[in-house]
């Protein structure tokens, strides 16, 4: 248990960045705990560039925590995370690896976007401003370019006429599609999706999922997606990871995992989810 000591130095050395060309996301021995509650216990996994990876598993198994660590909304207690060969959780000071400071985080998190279960649109801005805010303020795009980019994205998510609408005037499904456009406007390399349809009325789910399918098939963005929509996961995923208690218990292609899962736990979980739907 000594390895989940928050103060311990990561053990990874020079070999950590070796085959970075084929790895977009790399977790090495990641430990995350909240107080005494150890949520992730030395988690290792990697995602290739352009891959669509879906995380499934029971509530409380640590799926959201993984996404939040990647989005730098949480800090690791042990181990390291790399994105495209660059440390996210850590940085080099000289040739020593130390926990990342705010400046380093600011730099690396620009490559990552996230869409939340609760949309989290800015209610003090209209749809267009929600989407152009970060490209203007963070990427330094001229306003007209940012607006053009935003309008293209709104067309893509089917909300071309909602440019000046206010988030409160939109349905949940429309709000979520704006949130997707907002994340895409930053041209992220990695897009994190945390149960993006769970807060929606059932009839609005398909619209959002179709938009995501379209994006997944037309861009080379790397996706890490948490969802209970098994049909969707089966359609778009390159790989599915089954989580339980902060551990990956099964890592397989969707065809394999959904039709002939190896683990009893996976089978039980899939039954429970499918029965509920």
């Amino acid at each position: 248990m000594s390895s989940i000591d928050a103060t311990e130095e990561p053990e990874v050395g020079a070999e950590a960045t070796d085959d970075s060309a084929n790895v977009m996301i790399q977790f090495d021995g990641v430990v995350k705990q909240f107080g005494d509650n150890v949520v992730l216990r030395e988690l290792d996994f990697s995602v290739s560039p352009g891959e669509f990876v879906t995380l499934i598993g029971p509530s409380g198994s640590g799926k959201t925590t993984i996404l939040r660590l990647l989005m730098t909304l949480e800090k690791v207690n042990g181990g390291t995370i790399q994105v495209d060969g660059e440390y996210l959780s850590h940085m080099y000071r000289g040739d020593k690896l130390v926990p990342a400071d705010e400046k380093h985080l600011t730099k690396v998190r620009k490559r990552i976007g996230m869409v939340f279960q609760q949309f989290n649109l800015f209610p003090n801005m209209n749809v267009l401003q929600n989407i152009t805010e970060a490209p203007i303020r963070v990427l330094g795009l001229p306003k007209s370019d940012a607006e053009e980019r935003a309008k293209d994205l709104l067309d893509m998510v089917g909300l071309g006429e909602k440019v000046t609408a206010h988030p409160t005037q939109l349905s949940g499904g429309q709000q979520q599609r704006v949130a997707i456009a907002r994340a895409l406007a930053m041209r992220p390399d990695v897009l994190l999706l945390d149960e993006v349809t769970s807060a929606l009325d059932p009839e609005l789910v398909a619209g959002v999922l179709n938009v995501l399918k379209e994006i997944a098939s037309t861009t080379d963005i790397t996706f890490l997606c948490v969802t209970h929509e098994m049909g969707f996961a089966k359609d778009v995923s390159d790989r599915v990871l089954m989580f339980d208690q902060g551990q990956i218990i099964e890592d397989a292609s969707p065809d394999k995992l959904f039709t002939e899962p190896e683990h009893e736990r996976t089978r039980e979980f899939l039954h429970a989810v499918i029965d509920r739907a």
Binding site: M71, T72, L73, T106, R109, K110, I112, G113, M114, F116, Q118, N120, L121, F122, E133, A134, R137, V138, A179, R182, A183, M186
Partner: peptide
């Protein structure tokens, strides 16, 4: 809290 988190996710200073 989600407003802070969305701002972080967009890298807003």
């Amino acid at each position: 809290k989600g407003q802070w988190e969305a701002s972080t996710a967009l890298s807003l200073p």
